[in-house]
């Protein structure tokens, strides 16, 4: 099982991958993860690769190798869609985050693009999380739960 988690620095991408990895370890499975950390943290795209199973060699999931993509941000989900396996599942948050450098960005267009693909798409309403918690902080955990309820 290969799970790719993507989002923006500060959204808790790495934390979400740690939750998944620890759970797999507790189930007695072998798990490897890899993170993009460093310069990319500052407002940039962040991707975490979680690989569960004995037969994974590379720390990173190959293109077309992810069973699941957990996208904490619509455009980042689209950016990483090439990693998805044929017939794979995508959980995407509705909340777009505009680039810190400005410029036009329409998250709806990203969601529309995803809806047009031949994939299993789970749309997670980030605003519901916000209404409940008063912040988006738990969005990462919420997304992990959404995926687990559906497929893991």
């Amino acid at each position: 099982m290969n799970i790719l988690i993507c989002g923006i620095g500060g959204q808790g991408v790495v934390y979400a991958s740690k939750i998944l990895a620890r759970q797999a370890l507790e189930r007695g499975e072998t798990v490897h993860t890899a993170e993009t950390i460093g310069m990319a943290q500052r407002g940039g795209s962040v991707v975490s690769h979680v690989r569960i199973g004995d037969d994974c060699h590379s720390p990173l999931i190959p293109i077309g190798g992810a069973d699941v993509i957990i996208g904490l941000e619509p455009a980042e989900t689209v950016r990483n869609i090439a990693y998805l396996k044929h017939g794979g599942t995508v959980a995407v948050s509705t909340r777009g985050i505009a680039p810190t450098t400005g410029g036009d960005y329409d998250p709806e267009a990203m969601l529309t693009y995803l809806k047009g693909l031949d994939i299993n798409l789970i749309i997670v309403d980030a605003e519901e999380v916000f209404r409940r918690d008063g912040s988006y902080r738990n969005l990462n955990v919420e997304m992990v739960n959404a995926i687990q309820n559906k497929i893991l």
Binding site: M39, A75, V78, I81, A82, T100, T101, G103, A109
Partner: peptide, 18 residues
């Protein structure tokens, strides 16, 4: 090789000062 999907224009996110 898996065909690279055609993507809509994506926002660019260069690292910036906080």
């Amino acid at each position: 090789s898996p065909q690279a999907p055609e993507l809509p224009p994506l926002p660019v996110r260069p690292p910036v000062l906080c």
